[in-house]
Design a protein around this nucleic acid. Structure first.
Length: 700
DNA sequence: GCGATCAGTT
DNA sequence: CACAACTGATCGC
């Protein structure tokens, strides 16, 4: 749950994801996605009144978010005041104080966040430096490195502060199975059940929130069965989603809801009310998406857990795991990092401690503040590949920041930036190291991990975070910047084509901004540069919105099957740990209350599936990753690139940057489990019948 | 009556 | 386990 107050230190005149209290005075509003905890005050009378008086105040969000927002009648009054900004399209916005006429320019870029349809991160560039507000996000390892607009001149942009989704910023949540693994697990469970007969139904017990759509679309696509939902009008202009949903109850997969749904389920009734089909009773299982996490060194990747005779929990997460957050932050390498979320049970201080103790060593402020640290060279921020979970153990358990390998180089030259408001020129290309050197470490760490009994070792008790250096804390204090209007007027802006207050700008434009990091100019040749694009008009005619833009449309089939990972111990399903392999009869009563839930562990056979079927999510989410790296940084195309990476920066690192949670090189020719075998196993799982436990160790 | 807040539930 | 939302009770405008 977001606890972000709405304002960033660097740009206090804008408000993001909060619309109450101080935010009522904002000059512009930003909404990262359509979840209620990010919309506080958005429909309050006080803000509505403000809107009526301040005609220049607008709400900026992604096209999908705009669509979802305006579908709700409660927010319809925003209609004329919402401006959708295309993903990956730097856009200039004038922040005008209507009382004084004071004006400040800021450039915002929306980056896909992978949290729910339409979810974005906001990258702001202006006179107070570049800051990134992540909103809520789930990005696999390495995905951040493929976001072209976070880069300039081949290197990651110089980011002053990151306002970070810290939902799982805790050792306990070190690892969460990848989206693809989870999808695959759910898919096979659903498949095994609904193929038994037309009367076998699946109820996906999802919350009333955006974010499950990619699950629905993937199931529908793979199984050819639409998902029953209560409402789908919000997707009317998103055919990629719409086509996989239905309001016709006559389907085998249901994601409909009802306040008494759990009770219904006990009585073999789906939330939409149906209990039988053609006078034949239905056989229904429920699958409840839930976040499952694993410790740092845990090799297990269970994605489905049986919780009752007919009930399952399936791993599903909207948020990045701790290791994914680390990967993200270490790549961004900001001067400051602030938490947007204070997880329940933790305090702001505790989260800051975690950030400082574990993440800040990756950031420049702490590195530069760490006198003992001796950089090995004067390389600029370099990024090659992402460290493996296991491999990172030593890195993050060390009390002192001892950057290794690629994490070493950046600070010397960047050190001064800590004290500067404005970004420095970044005129050296980001250097990339040979990813080959990591392999050995990976293997070593991985095999080592096999000998360390540290399952769930990250539960709070066993890992006290390193003490935080006071120096580090200094770098973290809220940077309260004096109102700077000195640079507010930058005539350079005027040379660009402009409509109203907002225009789409190119990085080239940014480079002409005195306060921009590009001031020094990119040394990369510009292959092309779109003419500044007109701001897409907010009123009106809704065109089809591709779910590719929805910032969350992972599709299993997009991955092909190249990613079968050799990760061991993919435990598809298990209940309580023991329970042995016992036979469980699953003959369900035709009617009457059934103890569908919470049967004892011994009643449930522990069904373990351990093929080499951990799905490797390399190349996931191509709408995110599709950003072409051929477009020269420094140039903004503002266009979606084809899914395939073309040449250049990433091509040589394609493997190393694939987002496998384990960074184990995928083996394309690895043997896939045979469909019959899988079907047999899942069938057994679904019915609770006993199966022979087959634990296979996979060779790396 | 509406909205904000909190506690409890799913 | 958490998340995000919903429900119901309470309080204030």
């Amino acid at each position: 749950m977001s606890s972000f107050e709405g304002q960033m230190a660097e740009y206090p005149t804008i408000s993001i994801d909060r619309f109450d209290r101080e935010n009522l005075k904002a000059r512009a509003y930003f909404l990262s996605h359509c979840h209620k905890d990010h919309m506080k005050g958005l429909r309050a009378p006080s803000l509505k009144r403000r809107l009526e008086c301040s005609m220049k105040v607008f709400l900026y969000c992604s096209p999908v978010t705009k669509e979802l927002l305006l579908t709700s009648s409660k927010y319809r009054f925003w209609e004329k005041r919402v401006r959708a900004i295309e993903i990956d399209t730097p856009t200039q916005i004038a922040l005008v104080d209507e009382a004084s006429g004071e004006k400040e320019e800021i450039v915002v870029t929306l980056l896909p966040a992978g949290h729910c349809p339409g979810s974005v991160m906001f990258l702001f560039q202006g006179s107070n430096g570049t800051v990134l507000y992540t909103g809520d996000f789930r990005l696999a390892k390495g995905e951040v490195s493929r976001m072209e607009l976070l880069h300039s001149g081949g290197r990651v942009k110089d980011i002053q502060s990151v306002y970070l989704d810290t939902t799982f910023c805790d050792q306990r949540f070190y690892q969460i199975p990848s989206r693809e693994e989870c999808l695959r697990g759910i898919l096979e469970l659903v498949r095994s059940w609904i193929t038994r007969s037309p009367n076998h139904m699946v109820w996906l017990n999802c919350k009333a929130a955006y974010g499950y759509e990619y699950l629905f679309t993937n199931l529908s696509e793979e199984l050819g069965v639409q998902v029953h939902v209560d409402k789908m009008d919000m997707f009317r202009n998103m055919p990629d989603i719409l086509h996989h949903l239905t309001t016709d109850r006559n389907t085998q997969i249901h994601a409909c809801r009802h306040p008494k749904a759990e009770e219904y389920f006990q009585w073999n009734k789906l939330p939409c009310g149906i209990t039988s089909k053609n006078k034949t009773v239905l056989h229904t299982i429920s699958i409840k998406p839930s976040t499952m996490w694993f410790g740092e060194r845990t090799r297990k990747t269970k994605v489905i857990v049986r919780t009752g005779e007919s009930s399952y929990r399936a791993c599903f997460s909207f948020h990045s795991s701790y290791s994914e957050i680390k990967d993200f932050l270490s790549y961004i390498c900001p001067v400051n990092a602030y938490p947007n979320v204070i997880p329940v049970g933790l305090t702001m201080d505790k989260v800051m401690d975690v950030l400082e103790g574990n993440l800040k060593p990756l950031c420049r402020s702490s590195q530069s503040a760490e006198p003992k640290y001796k950089p090995l060279g004067k390389l600029k921020r370099t990024r090659t590949k992402h460290l493996d979970s296991e491999e990172e153990d030593d890195l993050f358990d060390d009390p002192l920041p001892i950057p290794l390998r690629h994490k070493v180089p950046y600070q010397l030259t960047l050190h001064p930036e800590v004290f500067l408001m404005k970004e420095l020129p970044q005129d050296q290309p980001k250097l990339r190291q040979n990813p080959g050197s990591y392999k050995a470490d990976n293997m070593q760490a991985a095999s080592l991990a096999n000998f360390i009994d540290c399952e769930e070792s990250n539960s709070d008790s066993d890992e006290e975070e390193p003490e935080t250096s006071p120096l580090l804390q200094g770098g973290l204090g809220p940077v309260t910047l004096a109102q700077q209007n000195a640079d507010a007027d930058t005539p350079q802006w005027e040379v660009f084509f402009k409509r109203k207050d907002d225009i789409t700008v190119t990085d080239e434009c940014l480079e002409n901004l005195p306060s921009s990091i590009e001031t020094g100019g990119s040394q990369s040749p510009k292959l092309f540069s779109d003419s500044p694009k007109l701001f897409s008009d907010s009123d009106g005619e809704s065109t089809h919105i591709s779910s590719q833009n929805s910032s969350q449309s992972t599709h299993i089939t997009d991955q092909g099957s190249q990613g079968w990972d050799s990760q061991c111990d993919t435990v598809l399903l298990s209940s309580q740990e023991k329970s042995g392999v016992e036979s469980t009869s699953l003959n369900k009563d035709a009617c009457g209350p059934k103890s569908k839930e919470n049967i004892s562990a011994s009643q449930m056979g522990q069904n373990v599936l351990c093929p080499q079927d951990t799905y490797c999510d390399s190349k996931s989410r191509d709408e995110v990753n599709g950003v072409s790296h051929t477009g020269e940084p420094g140039t903004v195309s503002g266009k979606k690139s084809p899914p395939e990476d073309k040449t250049s920066l990433t091509s040589t690192h394609a493997d190393s940057q694939s987002s496998s949670d384990f960074e184990i090189p995928s083996t394309p020719e690895a043997e896939l489990p045979k469909p019959e075998h899988l079907k047999y196993l899942y069938g057994k799982l679904a019915t609770g019948e006993s199966i022979v436990v087959e634990k296979r160790k996979c060779s790396l």
